[in-house]
């Protein structure tokens, strides 16, 4: 959902205030002018400046103060001396994390899980949207759209419980189906190898219909003239999809792809934590759940913060890098 929002932020129209006609003013005059402009604007629109204070305080307190608090990753945090009073520890906690055998496990689990999720959940909404776009029967189209959209509104807790119930050995729906095909019953969730499949495919089940919406909208905006031209050239449906539909939604695909690749290390905590059990930990322990265990359960605040910081920095670097690549390749980026 966070998708695609970034693009709009940078498209602000240029400020209208261009009073000084003729030669551009010197830098000093310009900064003085800006200050004057601020003063005049505040005097005239003081209510707006007052209005914006509470939400800005929110961002300061709950977003920027935590960023400053992250300094405890470099300190031996203890409650008595507090965040600023605790003694410096340098990179000790990072070293502890990197030398911990769990390091490779959680990093590779996180990476593999989201890579798998990306590969599985990226093309399916596109296929769904392209298929829906071919249908002219309104009732059928609406039904498919509404039904596939529905799981998006179900909570993670419920989706995971549904998965557990359906996959439970002997009594679940899955064992009915495998039994029907004569396959042996398995306890899927007790096997580490199945964790990723369950995670990824329940994700696809839940979000494919929702993610298709954005492509459907892009498809609705395709110039009808292109279809006419394709018809005149004698293109069949598949050729029309390949040569008209796909190129038309490529910009949307690129934006979605950038965002997914950029957030590849930011796998959410909620679902992995719920699907975890002692038997599948070797694959289900990811950075987010590990941070929770170290920080909240073991109360090792400095180590947990170091791990979290490591993850945040990787995310940021990935997003920036992907954006640069995307700009090079397609001439279109997020900012």
């Amino acid at each position: 959902m966070v998708h695609t929002g970034l693009g709009t932020a940078s498209t602000a129209p240029p400020p209208v205030a261009t009073r000084g006609l003729g030669t551009p003013p010197s830098p000093r005059r310009r900064s003085g002018e800006r200050r004057g402009r601020l003063r005049r604007s505040v005097r005239r629109h003081w209510q707006l400046y007052l209005l914006v204070i509470p939400p800005l305080l929110y961002f300061l307190v709950f977003q920027y103060v935590p960023m400053a608090n992250a300094i405890i990753a470099f300190k031996d945090f203890n409650v008595v001396e507090g965040i600023w009073g605790s003694p410096w520890a340098g990179l000790e906690y990072f070293e502890r994390f990197f030398s911990n055998p769990m390091f490779t496990t959680v990093v590779s689990n996180t990476f593999l899980l989201s890579l798998y999720a990306l590969i599985a959940s990226f093309p399916i909404p596109i296929i769904l949207a392209l298929a829906l776009n071919e249908i002219r029967a309104r009732f059928f189209k609406r039904t498919v759209q509404m039904v596939t959209y529905a799981p998006y509104f179900i909570s993670t807790v419920v989706v995971v419980s549904m998965a557990i119930l359906i996959l439970s050995p002997r009594i679940g729906l899955a064992s009915d189906l495998t039994g029907f095909f004569g396959l042996p019953a398995t306890d899927y969730l007790a096997q580490p190898d199945f964790f990723r499949h369950v995670y990824v495919w329940s994700e696809v089940w839940q979000t494919a219909g929702y993610s298709a919406v954005i492509y459907l909208a892009a498809l609705a905006g395709v110039d009808p003239g292109l279809y006419e031209a394709a018809k005149v050239d004698g293109a069949n449906r598949l050729q029309k999809i390949w040569h008209v539909d796909l190129p038309s939604i490529t910009p949307t695909i690129v934006v979605v792809l950038i965002l997914s690749v950029g957030s590849i290390m930011a796998v959410g905590f909620e679902k992995a934590f719920l699907l975890q059990n002692p038997l599948n930990l070797s694959q289900s322990e990811i950075i987010a759940t590990y941070t929770y265990k170290i920080g909240i359960q073991n109360a090792d605040f400095s180590l947990a913060t170091a791990i979290g910081l490591f993850n945040s920095v990787i995310n940021l670097v990935l997003l920036v890098a992907v954006n640069i690549v995307a700009k090079r390749v397609t001439g279109k980026g997020l900012w």
Partner: peptide, 14 residues
């Protein structure tokens, strides 16, 4: 704040 966050524990401390 969408691109970078303090993390779980720093927020918890706040």
């Amino acid at each position: 704040t969408m691109l970078f966050a303090g993390g779980l524990i720093p927020t918890y401390l706040v």
